[in-house]
Nucleic acid binder design. Sequence first.
RNA 1: GGCCCGGUAGCUCAGCUGGUAGAGCAACGGACUGAAAAUCCGUGUGUCGCCGGAUCGUCCCCGGCCUGGGCCA
Length: 288
Amino acid sequence: MIYAIVGPTCSGKSRLAFEIAKKIHGEIINCDVFQMYKELNIGTAKPGKKERDAIRHHLFDILSPDQYCSVADYQKLVRPIIDDLLSRNIPVIIVGGGGLYLRAALYDYEFHEQKIVDLSRFQNMSNNELYDYLKTIDFDESKKLHPNNRQRVMRAISIYMQEGISKSELLATQRHVLLYKVRFYAISLPREGLYRRIDDRVEKMFADGLLSEAESLYKKYGENIPAFRAIGYKESIGYLNGLTDVNGAKEAIKKHTRNYAKTQMTFYRHQFPTLQWIREIKDVIFDE
RNA sequence: GGCCCGGUAGCUCAGCUGGUAGAGCAACGGACUGAAAAUCCGUGUGUCGCCGGAUCGUCCCCGGCCUGGGCCA
């Protein structure tokens, strides 16, 4: 059995996952993009050493800050671990805020080999030109996208260019079903309480030295690394570059974290139909 | 005590000679299959400080009061 724990950032997912793992002698798999990074410790709120010594944790601290891990990369990493644990009858607790990554791990998402093709002629096209082009190669997908969503429009075009099949055709080859027996749990917290926890956690991150952690990473890797897309770090870089003062950076982190939490909840509400909203471990239904 | 400026959305502020109000940010809702802590879409939530007056009709005009700031005593 797989227990998938989701919930907005700062809701106490890691703690709940740890309690469950302890109770059923399971192992924990990370499903949070930024907790996969080494050296990003303060801003990502990783599980502590005590927890990680007590329970086996997978996919934490496996990436260097200058590495990148797409959903497809993650799927490739996580599937063998899940399969191995299940084959040895070890319960799997998969936890993290990355909703899409979780779906890619557990559903029959398929990612194909990408050929290297020249997409440069699209770079200079306007949003509407790109969108019009998408309509000619994948009309169904274009209907789902807004022309302003350049990132997605581009992606749909590049699927066609790289894989020789349109995105909607590709999705039609999948059944959109779970590959495993999974129970989904989401931590439910009143919005107000969650926002208060976010404020407190950001204050604590600053007290713990988030800025100096960001600074030493900045010195080591420069500012254009994948890890600096993380909330907490990108704002710290803004401060280090003199674009804002400490308080400005701190308030931006709080705001971005709130926005992120909200987007996460929307995703969970609509993308995991079997989701159960719970408050604490006693709400979790175990086998046996 | 006198004079001046202000009080409009959660915040900062617009509002043409009177026709019951709108921007930015915040907030809220939504989309989501290789950038997802990313990207994008949608929504104005209001005793226009209070009371009275003039007017067919007022955020806007008149009077009083409350309140914040400044200057002079």
